[in-house]
Design a protein around this nucleic acid. Structure first.
Lengths: 247, 247
DNA sequence: CGTATCATTGAGCTTAGTCAAAAAGTGTGG
DNA sequence: CCACACTTTTTGACTAAGCTCAATGATACG
């Protein structure tokens, strides 16, 4: 496993704990947990870079991580946000070199050696199916992100973001979502500026759609106000929907 | 196959031609071409809707298609653009009901019965691997879209869009990319207004980055001017990159 | 050849980005 | 436990970019 984490005298105990955590969280590759390498990362630490073919498939056990690139104009873009239960490192994109970094202080991932998994999949169709499932889940995760990025106003984007987080982190009841990322991360995930994120949150609160329990904890008050546009008054759908002509 | 296309007396001849076309274009599921259902669609015609679990996996042989949703504010969003050589219909997203429509006048797709393919994959590991390949390709296609959507200015988005099209439609030499979609489609793909797309194209032309041979055909003159920001003058990267704190 | 759609361009207004600074947390070391 | 430095978050003022509305060319289709 690349980039081994901080070694301490209690490393073994910790690993044992994480292994147990992994076992207790049901996921498609459970059969292969025996050969999983478990590593923990500090916040900001690089988990892997994806410019070359990744050797591992990863499963995020706890914490959070981001996949990001730096564009030629110097802006960082977060292309994916990984939360507990997510797999990543699947696609060896030809495209821009992305790196995956831990976002939370204690981010723990399980790494499955790709060649090993592939090999097992060849002999066990059930595993092959589950790998497909994993890929499809990653696909639909990214599609949600496109749906969010495609929204028009910043308030809508931030609203959708909160809803997405609320769904994906549904473990902690509905008593308030605790965002694992900073405003900067939200900004780079949504393609807006930090200030705009902050202002959008303030507005949503004034509007009564959410409540900020503290800076990182949001309570959704009116779900509808988050996903819909604010003023559906007078005018209705301006639909860019003409049928098109072939080239 | 759902939504059978226009039947004509020459249907058989046409299908035979398409089947040959399918055979001549190498792709991962070639072994299964025998059981592929080939259908052609008019522009604007619905190929399939994705709200329920899709029964088929599709391969686009010729033409173009778009996967789109209508948001609650009435705006259409194009979540994916399918070109010859692309597979689609893979992920049965829980999310918003998307439909896939033909964009070009003669859009021809091959449909592989999902259950059948799954079954074959179980007995043939090579097919299972190729299915994974297909999923990964779809994944990286959508990731490119995120990269484009994340760009800041409209000119950058349109520029990246042209480059993406040039790459994916690389069949027709570098003598000019013929865009298969209308300005409206580009707008809904990039999340900007039609007028903005038009203005961006005009600007890129004035700037000497592209040449519009006709409204649907673009010739890339200076590739760099399309992917980079225009003014990298005085100031450099404003990097939103502080390390983050866990929740 | 007329009609409908698509594409381009302009003018005004709204939104979000930029620059700047203050406020609220967070962590460290005395 | 508190003072201090540092980061994160919020808010304000100004500017620039894009959306909306509207009108005019251009093209395709019947």
């Amino acid at each position: 496993m690349p980039h081994a984490s901080t070694a301490s005298s209690q490393q073994n105990n910790a690993t044992a704990y994480y292994r147990q955590l992994l076992a207790s969280r049901p996921h498609p590759l459970q059969k292969l947990d025996g050969l999983a390498a478990i590593t923990s990362f500090h916040r900001g630490e690089r988990i892997c870079s994806q410019d070359q073919t990744t050797e591992y498939w990863y499963f995020l056990i706890s914490g959070a991580a981001r996949r990001c690139t730096i564009r030629c104009d110097g802006h960082r873009q977060i292309m994916d946000l990984l939360l507990p239960g997510d797999f990543f490192g699947l696609a060896f994109g030809v495209q821009s070199d992305a790196i995956i970094e831990a976002v939370s202080q204690n981010t723990v991932v399980a790494g499955y050696l790709r060649s090993r998994v592939e090999c097992l999949a060849d002999s066990d169709p059930a595993i092959a199916r589950e790998l497909r499932e994993i890929a499809f889940k990653a696909l639909s995760r990214i599609q949600s992100q496109i749906l969010i990025l495609g929204r028009i106003t910043a308030v809508e984007k931030v609203g959708s973001f909160i809803l997405e987080m609320a769904e994906r982190l549904s473990n902690g009841k509905c008593e308030g979502v605790s965002l694992p990322v900073s405003r900067y991360d939200i900004a780079d995930y949504l393609g807006v500026s930090v200030e705009t994120v902050s202002r959008a949150l303030s507005r949503l609160q004034h509007r009564g759609a959410i409540r900020l329990l503290n800076t990182r904890t949001v309570r959704v008050v009116y779900r509808n106000a988050l996903e819909e546009r604010v003023r559906p008054d007078s005018k209705w759908p301006v639909d860019n929907n003409p049928r098109n002509v072939a080239a």
